[in-house]
Design a protein around this nucleic acid. Structure first.
Lengths: 170, 170
DNA sequence: CACGATTGAGTTGTGCACAACTGAATCGCG
DNA sequence: CGCGATTCAGTTGTGCACAACTCAATCGTG
């Protein structure tokens, strides 16, 4: 019977280095994302928003009024995630949803007055987050660029998750 | 009645730049994490593992046998997340759980033979992921370092999410 | 030894993410 | 015009993440 002990001869190949390195990258990303989420959780508690709800409000504050579809494009989320999220934002009085009269399939979302007022209170949030990162702004900017490039690469490499028409079909 | 139009005079302050930049950083991280998840979803489909389950198996493959507590320390996850995840891994026949005889509170988890065998098939995964990132290994390593530093900073800045004894109490 | 505090795993409830699907509205081509 | 294909929002089901909690085992100190 073969014992698969850690550090054994069985796990000495370069494949395992790959495995280990790889694990670090994706896991670091995963952990950093959750750590950010935790800090936002604290920062947003006063506003009664979760982090994804905050992202949705950012989009709406910036664009004023958008169909669900457009919000999804900004956040890279589909209706399966957005519909319940927006319903919760509506229940909390932050947004208003109504069917478009031009296209009855579409639902237009926009901040209520209370939702717009919330923006003022949200102004304090980014400062807290920036302080928590402990990084200079340039560093943050560089990191952002790299992550965006990485996301684009991953999306285009994964024909399932990416937009169906992204891959060249010629 | 005040219209809060996008790009209006109301949103011209430096606060909004902060808001916008901030949104980019955390959101980029969030999006990259989800993009990674999507690629792993494809790569792990054959193995019948989700991405978090894969992470747990990586830890177990490396260490051979661990109590739930230790797995949680490696992955930065608590029992609320791990317990159901490990039960699913057990139901799939990948791991075995049993109460420690030394400390009846503790549950020791280790790969079954089938779970250990799965490792061989998992060796193909990192290559696929590395290819999908389209980044050279050095770049990946640098990114990992930065993300780890960021996570550490965020954890220490958030007294709730971090270890209760992290903050100095003197 | 006794008893309060702590530790470890598990459960419950909420919310996010995503695949797969439904159903209605719209589009487009014959 | 008519009818199949597409688009959009929403629903369902599964799984992860986390807060708050339960409960039993263990520890520490008197």
């Amino acid at each position: 019977m073969v014992e698969t002990m850690p550090g054994d001869a069985l796990s000495g190949g370069p494949e395992d280095d790959f495995l280990r390195l790889d694990q670090q990258v994706c896991f670091s990303l995963h952990a950093a994302s959750r750590a950010f989420n935790g800090v936002y959780r604290s920062a947003l508690k006063d506003l009664g928003l979760t982090y994804p709800q905050y992202l949705a409000m950012l989009v709406l504050w910036e664009h004023g009024e958008l169909p669900v579809k457009r919000i999804g494009e900004h956040l890279r989320l589909d209706s399966g995630t957005l519909s319940p999220l927006l319903k919760r934002l509506e229940a909390a009085g932050h947004v208003e949803r109504r069917r478009s009269s031009e296209d009855e399939r579409s639902v237009t979302v926009r901040p209520t007055e209370a939702g717009a007022a919330l923006r003022e209170r949200a102004r304090a949030v980014p400062r807290r987050i920036a302080a928590a990162t402990g990084l200079p702004l340039e560093r943050v900017r560089a990191l952002r660029e790299e992550l965006n490039a990485l996301t684009a690469a991953l999306d285009s490499a994964d024909p399932v998750a990416a937009s169906p028409c992204t891959a060249e079909s010629d």
